[in-house]
Amino acid sequence: MKLSQQIINPLEVHGPTIEGEVQPLNYKRIALDMIDSSPLESLTCSALKTAYKRKNIDFPVVFERDLIIGQRDFGQVITALENGSSFVYILTSLRPGNITLAHHVLLTFCSGLQRCYHIPVIVQVCDIEKFYLEELVLEDIQKLYHDMVPQILSCGFDQNITYIFSNIQNSQFMYPNIIKIQKLISVQEIMDFYSLTINDIAGFVTHPSYAIAATFASSIPSLATHSQAWRCLCIYFCEKDVHYRLARNIACNIGETPPATLALKIFPGLRSVGTNMLLETAANSIFMVDTAAVIRKKINSCLSGGRETIEEHRKLASALSTYKQVIVAITAGFVQGAIIEKDVAIEMFRFLCPTSNAFHALVSKYENGLILSGEMKKEVIAIIQEIVISYQRGLQL
């Protein structure tokens, strides 16, 4: 049996593989690797819920569905904001191109926090990284960046306090911090953290310093005047944790404040819950410019956790009608409906369903064999289509 370990870093994400099939990500392992990170505290969550309610903003579902994998000093930042501090900025990053459903989840989460506390958001567009990874000329990369700006702003941001920049565009301002950072990190550290080899291009060794530099306000022109007063809050999917862990490790050595962090679980690509939509091909991603018909086709073809036959899938449902629920069904050896841990559509639904009651009801029916994969996907498709159509209307305004 051919086995391989999972890989999680900003350049590559996949769960462990068995005979070439990508398995779900092992988040217990990821959490252990996120050094000095800890779970979200209930007091912080309660304070956030009160703040969102005060501003009449929907409370993000990621706080309620086990989608936050770890944080560092996040509670300190929320306490400071609750006490009236205005010197906090949110940092998130992405590569240039049409935004995907995964981008939309991350960006709307950031814009919601921005509206709640009226704080700046910095969106770092990693065009240099894109240039290193893909066979595109630099002019094409820069065009992708410029086309992406209105797509980002349409995710609910306040344009007056949102600053979007590309690494090429902003490199002159970041460069003093970049060279300080590069002096403090060894090539071996970068190779280990990013699973690089001596055959990878040299650019991959230098790129992390751009991501780290943006966590320091002195790298951001709009914040540089009072840079020592600002605290950065990095919000990201957890494959980028290494960037911000390194930033915290070296901040004090260059006279900067360590950033706070909030890491989300990864939004999956269509081929497996063990993949990352942000790093997948176009065929395995859903874009916010996709039509309703394209979305339906993509979701219907994504990896399902349903059983091979209807009879297998429904065995638990029939057992539940005659015996004492799941315990008896398991003891008797009945198949337990869908394997939700492997189901891509269910994992997307976890991020997207606006109400927890509806989410848990659908999962329960599917897991217990009361509905089939196609019936479940129909509901997920409807939610995604609604989100995408609403976004497209805003983009046209």
Results as ranks from 00 to 15, higher is better:
21 E>A: 10
173 F>A: 13
330 I>Y: 01
116 C>E: 04
274 G>R: 13
112 G>K: 08
87 F>R: 13
337 G>A: 07
205 V>C: 12
311 E>I: 09
59 F>D: 14
7 I>G: 00
364 S>E: 09
36 D>T: 06
356 S>N: 15
274 G>Q: 09
32 L>A: 14
95 R>M: 15
18 I>C: 03
197 T>K: 02
85 S>F: 11
389 I>M: 10
345 A>Q: 04
173 F>E: 08
352 L>I: 13
233 L>K: 04
296 R>K: 15
114 Q>W: 11
218 S>D: 11
238 C>D: 08
312 E>D: 12
320 L>C: 04
271 R>A: 12
58 D>F: 08
41 E>L: 15
82 E>L: 14
129 E>F: 11
329 A>G: 02
14 H>Y: 10
387 I>L: 09
141 I>G: 03
322 T>G: 00
311 E>V: 09
317 A>C: 13
19 E>M: 11
251 A>W: 05
329 A>L: 03
214 A>W: 02
372 L>C: 10
141 I>Q: 01
113 L>T: 07
233 L>E: 07
229 A>H: 10
396 Q>K: 13
144 L>S: 05
238 C>P: 03
5 Q>G: 12
336 Q>N: 09
116 C>R: 02
110 C>F: 06
255 G>D: 07
37 S>L: 04
318 S>G: 06
126 C>T: 14
342 K>D: 14
336 Q>M: 14
28 K>R: 05
30 I>N: 12
378 K>N: 12
50 T>F: 06
255 G>S: 09
122 I>H: 01
148 M>Y: 02
84 G>L: 07
114 Q>D: 11
366 Y>F: 10
185 I>Q: 03
80 A>W: 02
186 S>R: 12
216 F>A: 04
100 T>Q: 13
325 Q>L: 14
175 Y>E: 12
156 G>R: 11
361 A>F: 05
68 I>F: 07
94 L>C: 00
364 S>L: 07
112 G>P: 01
296 R>L: 14
343 D>A: 02
231 R>C: 08
26 N>M: 01
16 P>E: 12
242 V>Y: 01
60 P>T: 07
190 I>M: 06
375 E>C: 11
205 V>H: 08
63 F>N: 02
315 K>G: 00
344 V>C: 04
141 I>C: 10
221 P>K: 07
179 I>R: 00
233 L>M: 09
149 V>M: 01
151 Q>Y: 12
34 M>W: 03
165 F>S: 06
294 V>I: 15
